[in-house]
């Protein structure tokens, strides 16, 4: 009984993290049809930026500064890092590549991944960064006998806000409508006078910022070290493919499914933990080849 309860809590916390990581990936794919292998690197950049700035915030000026400032810092770091990196990469490189084969775009982002991995090493070195203060300061609650970190609970709220915000933006605003038009049929949208180039820039920067935000919010709970980004890519891919590429609600459903499955495996069958994610992915795809919320494309003759 206690275990089922723990599975639900652990699974939800993990799912909220997965959703944060996968949201940016699915937004970029949905609009631009780019499966972004470098997404993990944006996550890592956000984590590094946040960890180093929070470290500076607490160490540089002494403990006199209030803790809430560090939470602000996490978000600001993510926004700045995502904005700068996103703009530079989109304007400087991807813009020149639009219209190329979808697979070629995957490989371009793979090259980006290799470059960014070493680039981060040049900026931040290889020593792990720890920015534990925001995580440790929040304390913990006891939920039905299980001690849970408040920071993790707050993460659930954040991912609800992010998911809800994205949905409302896409469904309820004018820009969102235009974006949906681009998603539905790029050529027709262009013919209707939509500035597709601008929409692409907007989407890509939004995607990188979401990736960086996920990294920045994760940073306090972990030790930020090289190779961080590579580890999350496959995870994020799995979530997005399970949910259906390009769908926000799909990413949420995929995250929840993978998160709960994994938590159940950890509690009941630790031996299977390694396979759970790929197992879920294969099963879902075997039944629904386009993912839970994916759209079937019309075959063109």
């Amino acid at each position: 009984m206690n275990s089922i309860y723990a599975v639900l809590i652990d699974g939800t916390i993990y799912a909220s993290w997965l959703f944060l990581v996968a949201a940016g990936l699915t937004v970029i794919y949905g609009v631009m049809r780019i499966l972004n292998m470098a997404h993990g690197s944006f996550y890592a950049i956000g984590a590094y930026a946040a960890a180093s700035m929070v470290g500076w915030y607490f160490n540089g000026e002494g403990a006199a500064l209030p803790v809430w400032g560090s939470y602000l810092m996490l978000v600001v770091c993510a926004l700045v890092a995502g904005l700068v990196v996103g703009l530079v990469i989109e304007r400087g490189l991807l813009r020149l590549m639009y219209g190329r084969d979808e697979i070629l775009m995957v490989i371009i982002t793979y090259a980006l991944l290799l470059i960014l991995e070493d680039g981060m090493k040049m900026v931040w070195g290889v020593d792990p960064y720890m920015a534990f203060q925001p995580y440790a300061e929040m304390g913990r609650s006891v939920l039905g006998g299980l001690k849970v970190s408040n920071y993790d609970l707050a993460l659930i709220a954040v991912s609800l806000v992010v998911g809800g915000g994205l949905w409302a933006w896409l469904e309820r605003t004018n820009t969102g409508k235009v974006l949906r038009a681009v998603i539905h049929d790029r050529e027709v949208a262009m013919a209707m006078g939509v500035n597709v180039g601008l929409m692409f820039t907007l989407t890509f920067v939004l995607g990188t910022t979401l990736g960086a935000l996920a990294g920045a919010l994760t940073a306090p709970a972990i030790s930020v070290a090289p190779g961080l980004g590579v580890e999350v890519i496959v995870l994020a891919f799995a979530v997005v493919v399970v949910g259906g590429l390009g769908s926000i609600e799909g990413a949420a459903a995929g995250a929840l499914l993978v998160g709960l499955a994994r938590a159940a495996a950890v509690h009941y069958a630790p031996e299977l933990e390694l396979f759970v994610i790929y197992g879920v992915m294969s099963l879902v795809l075997a039944v629904r080849p386009q993912g839970l919320f994916g759209r079937t494309l019309v075959r063109k003759i």
Partner: peptide, 14 residues
């Protein structure tokens, strides 16, 4: 497309 890529990746990872 991408589904083939991801599914082949999944089998390899299994």
């Amino acid at each position: 497309d991408i589904f083939f890529a991801m599914l082949s990746l999944a089998f390899s990872m299994i």
